[in-house]
Design a protein around this nucleic acid. Structure first.
Lengths: 118, 118
DNA sequence: CTGGATCCTCAGGGATACTG
DNA sequence: CAGTATCCCTGAGGATCCAG
C-alpha cells in the first residue's frame, strides 16, 4: 500500500483515499459506530440498544440495524415468542473494526484535551 | 456489563463512547478527512485542494477549511499578492490523526474485500 | 417488545453568479 | 485565484401512531 518518507508514512495514493471513503460510507451518520460499540460488548435486544444510546429514535435504530446487517456487521436472531425477542450480535467482521474504534477513541481524548479541555 | 472474549479488550465505558462521538463530530461529513489527508501530503493552495478532491464545491471546501481551522487541524497562510495566494498546511495536531486514517484505510480495504470484492 | 408507516424539520451540500 | 452570496433540493433524522 504505501511507502515511507524518512520517518512518517503519509497517506497518498488514490486507492488509499478510496479505501478511507469506503470506510466512511459504511460507518457514516451519528449512530452506526455507537451501535457497533454497544454490540461489541455483547448481544443485545432492540430496546436495550435503544436505551443505551442516548438520543436515538426507534425508527433510526431500526434503519441503522438493517443497514449494518446488510454490511455483515451484525447478526439478527429472532426467537418465536411473545412478546417478541430479537437479539443482535456483532460478527467476526465487526471485530476488525476494533482498531478503527480504538483510534477514534484515542484521538477523541487527544482532541478534547487540545480544544476543549486545555 | 462486560464480557471478555479470550484475548480482546472491548469498548465499554461511557467516557470512551463520548470520546468516539467527539471524534466523529469533528471529522463528520464526507470532506474533512479527505481534505486533511490531502494536506498531510504537503501544503496546498485552495484550488489545488479543490482539484484533488473529486466532487467538492468551492463553497463546501471554503466552509470545511474554516471548520478545520477552528479545530486547529489546519493552518491558513495568506500572502499579499495578486492574484491572491493562500496556502493551507496540516498542523502538529493533524499528525495525531494518522492512526485514525490508517485504521480507516485498512478497514476500508478489508471491508471492500468482504462485501464487494469477494 | 419489535419495529413499520407517515409526516415533518432542518442542516448538508450542489449550482451558479459575483467580488476583491 | 480565493473565496462569498443566493437559491434550492435532498436526505438524515425526529415524533408519533400503529400492528404483529
Amino acid at each position: 500500500m504505501k511507502q515511507k518518507k524518512s520517518n512518517e508514512s503519509i497517506e497518498c495514493s488514490k486507492s488509499d483515499l478510496m479505501a478511507v471513503k469506503d470506510a466512511l460510507e459504511v460507518l457514516n451518520g451519528r449512530w452506526k459506530l455507537q451501535i457497533l460499540i454497544s454490540l461489541l460488548n455483547g448481544k443485545k435486544r432492540f430496546k436495550q440498544i435503544a436505551r443505551e444510546i442516548d438520543g436515538i429514535s426507534d425508527r433510526m435504530l431500526s434503519k441503522e440495524l438493517k443497514d449494518l446487517e446488510e454490511n455483515k456487521l451484525i447478526n439478527r436472531q429472532v426467537y418465536d415468542a411473545f412478546p417478541p425477542i430479537v437479539e443482535y450480535t456483532a460478527t467476526e467482521h465487526t471485530e476488525t473494526l476494533h482498531s478503527v474504534i480504538y483510534a477514534l477513541r484515542e484521538w477523541g481524548y487527544i482532541h478534547r484535551k487540545k480544544i476543549i479541555g486545555k
